[in-house]
Each structure stands twice: as C-alpha cells, then as structure tokens.
Nucleic acid binder design. Structure first.
Lengths: 225, 225
DNA sequence: TCGTTTTTGATAGTATTACTATTATTTTAG
DNA sequence: CTAAAATAATAGTAATACTATCAAAAACGA
C-alpha cells in the first residue's frame, strides 16, 4: 500500500504541514471542520481547540484560512488529475478517454485510508461548496500570479487536450472543460438544495448516472463537427 | 420616461429600502461599494460612512450584509427577466426566441438613469463575482424556503420553457439553463483573471461576441434531437 | 397647528474574528 | 548532552457584526 502525497506550491504555506504531526493534524481536521461549519464560520481558533493546540500554532503553518482552503482544494485537484491520468493512461481511443474523464469527474469519490492521506469524499464536498470562493476575490490576480490555481489549470488543460484529440477543430476546449468542471459540483448542489434549477433529482444512488448522462450528451454534441 | 422598480420579497429586508430616501441611498451606494471593495471587505460601517449615516441606521433596513447582497442580486435577476420577456414577447419562432435569450444574457449591460433605478452595469459585475456566495452557505435551505432565490429560479424556468419549445424531448432544460447562466459570468471572469481556463480573450469590444458564439453552439447542439 | 408616531442620529457596548508578539516549555537533531 | 527548533500559553490589538438606548428631527393625521 502506497500512501499518496503531493507537493504543493510553497506560496500556500509558511511551513509545510506535511512534515510534522501537528501540520498533518491541522490539514486533516480542517477538512472535517470546514465541511461541518462551512468556510465562513470556520476559524483557526475553533480548529486549534479541536486539535488541542493553539491559534498561534496554526498561524505558523498557514498565513490565513484563505490559504489553508486553497491548500486543501489544490490537493484535491492534484489528486483528481492523478486519478484521471491513471485511468486514461493506456486508452487509445480519444472518445473513450474523454468518456473516462467525465466518468471520473462525476463518479462518487471513495475514501481509502490505506491509499489516501486525506479524506477525498469530504474534500469533494468542500470543493463543491467552497472552490469558487477561492478565486472570486479582489486578490485573484495576486493569488494567480503566485501559482495558487495551478493544479486546477493543469487539470483543465489535460482534459482540454483530450477534447482536442476528439475534435481538433473545436474552438473552445478550455471554456468547455472549465464549464464542465463547474457543472459537476453545481448540479449536485442544486439537486440537493435548489431543485428548481436542475432536472437531476437528489438521490445518492442514481444522480451520478443522470449527471453523467447530462454531461456526456452536452460535451459530445457540443464538440461534434 | 418610466422609472423601473420591482417589489422584492419582504423576507429580504426589515424595512423596505425603496420607500425612503435613506433606504434608496443604502441600496444605491452599497452597489458601488461592494463593487469597489468586494463583498468580504464591505461592511455596514463603511457604507454608513459613505452615505453620511450610521451603522445602526443601516441595520434598520437590512438584517445583515448577506441579505442586502441577495436584495441587490434579486433585483438584478428580476430586471433581467423583465428585459428578456420584453424582447422575446412578440417573436414566434422558438429558436429565435432562444437566440434572443442568449443574446440578452451575454450582451453588455447599459445603464440608463432615465429608465433604471439602479446601475445595472455595476450590478452585472457584482452578480458575476458575488452571486454564488449567496447560496453556497450553510443557510441555503432556510434562505430558499424564505423565497430569497425566487427571481433566479423564475428566470431559469422562463428560459427552460423556451428550450422546451425548441425541443420538447430534451430532458435537461433546467440544468442546461442554470449551467448557461453561470457560464456567462464565469467565462467573462476567467477571460479577465484566469485566462488559462478559457478560450475567450479579454477584450471588452469583442469578447461578448465570442462568448455568444461559444454559448450558441453549446446550447443548440446540446438540445438538438 | 399641535401632538403623536416614525425615522434617524449619536453614542455606547459586547462577543467574536483575525491576527501579532512574547516568553516559557518541550521536542528533536547533531 | 547541548543547541536549535517547535510548540504551548498567554496577552494584546484593531476590526467586525451586531444590539441597545435615547434624544432630535421629520412626517403625518386630526
């Protein structure tokens, strides 16, 4: 059993949280706490209390909760790209590669503590609710310059390349992929909380299938010549 | 010259801001201030200072800044639905109706103080950056029950109906429309701040056209039988 | 026009947040 | 075993997100 870890840009943290017990505890517990409270209500003080440490100690790892959130989400996108890469690796048919990408995006995330360092299922939920808050800010240009959004851009680029393989003439592969990436989380959120905005009914057993059907149709028809 | 105003749900405010000079000043100035500072940095204290009033007075109109933001955005969606309604009103061809919907969604907003009560151009920018923050919260179900998202759902439904007219067999009209609504703001934001995620280049003279091309292709191909 | 209600302004106060700083203690690494 | 590094404990600050009180001003109704 190989434990998966990824190295993220140093601009995200003051001190690498993967290197110490406390650091790993901060990351691990911030996931459950953000999931439970939502990002707005989440504070370093509450986190410190949860892990039996102090606010000041948390601040030695992350400048602020914004950076910590991006750290978690960057980890998720890096992990997802790895998963997708792994599964399309030896598939030669471009259309099939694209179908696998979509399936991996939509598919329910499983958490295997033997393989994963973090709980991807909870992370998946956090990404759905909090991801857009990471860039819909006044500091987006600075954060972007600092490379904080690289994992997401990398994933987007990878899938855009697959689209280009299916139809090299299609003009908007990046726009389509960034759209698809948002749809996944948006439609699942709507299904659960704002059902008037979606035709996908909330039902953990079936909605992944419906979402996939919606997406496959949208993507393949859109890029067809 | 008719001044456009809309009545929004009473759950949004403590005291109707349209009824008093101070109320209108709060609404008007909150738009420019949120646009300038971003929602996170925006506070009732700063707003009160700006309009020469006090924090306590602002709190007499809105429970908190979250409700104020939804008020502004609800106003925008109500206005946009009115505009769309107005333009598709006497068009009989469903495909043409749909094309007009898309055009009105994408089109640069103009601000005519003779017709409009609020500055829709600035509001458009706020919607792009702040809209998703209104529902990506832990209170989404309560806010939804209180009818705070009705204008958006109404707009979505209206356009979904147009899609149904174009192809009654298409299974995901609401999902497609809510997707399209987000794309508009998302792709313009990406074009400006995260260009790696989009194929639309930032250029106020031409990007509306490109965005429209991307959308028209996506929507019509997706729903075609 | 007078009296009343409503609205606003002025001021104050509280709990919480988002930090920074200092020092003592513990852990770890050479 | 010692030095360096990491953490805990504690304190402190400015700002936020409110609530409360009371007086002045404006609006309004008889």
């Amino acid at each position: 059993m190989a434990i998966l870890t990824f190295k993220l840009t140093e601009n995200l943290y003051i001190k690498d949280p993967q290197e110490t017990e406390l650091g790993r505890s901060i990351v691990k517990n911030s996931i459950t706490l953000i999931d439970k409270l939502g990002f707005e209500e989440f504070t370093f003080k509450k986190l410190a209390l949860e892990i039996g440490s102090t606010e000041a100690s948390v601040y030695r790892y992350f400048e602020n909760k914004h950076k910590l959130l991006i750290y978690l989400i960057d980890w998720y996108w890096t992990w997802l790209e790895y998963i997708i890469e792994y599964h399309i690796n030896n598939i030669s048919d471009p259309a099939e590669r694209l179908r696998i990408c979509l399936r991996k995006l939509v598919e329910e995330k499983v958490f295997d503590p033997n393989i994963a360092y973090l709980d991807e299922r909870t992370l998946h939920r956090i990404v759905g609710v909090e991801f857009e808050k990471t860039y819909l800010t006044k500091q987006v240009d600075i954060d972007n310059r600092d490379g904080l959004f690289l994992p997401y851009k990398s994933l987007c680029k990878k899938i855009a390349c697959v689209i280009k393989q299916v139809n090299p003439a299609y003009e908007y592969p990046h726009s389509l992929v960034s759209t698809v990436l948002l749809i996944v989380y948006q439609q699942l959120f709507y299904a659960q909380h704002l059902p008037a905005l979606s035709d996908i009914k909330y039902d953990p057993k079936k909605h992944y299938k419906k979402l996939y059907a919606f997406l496959e149709n949208l993507v393949f028809k859109t890029i067809q010549a």
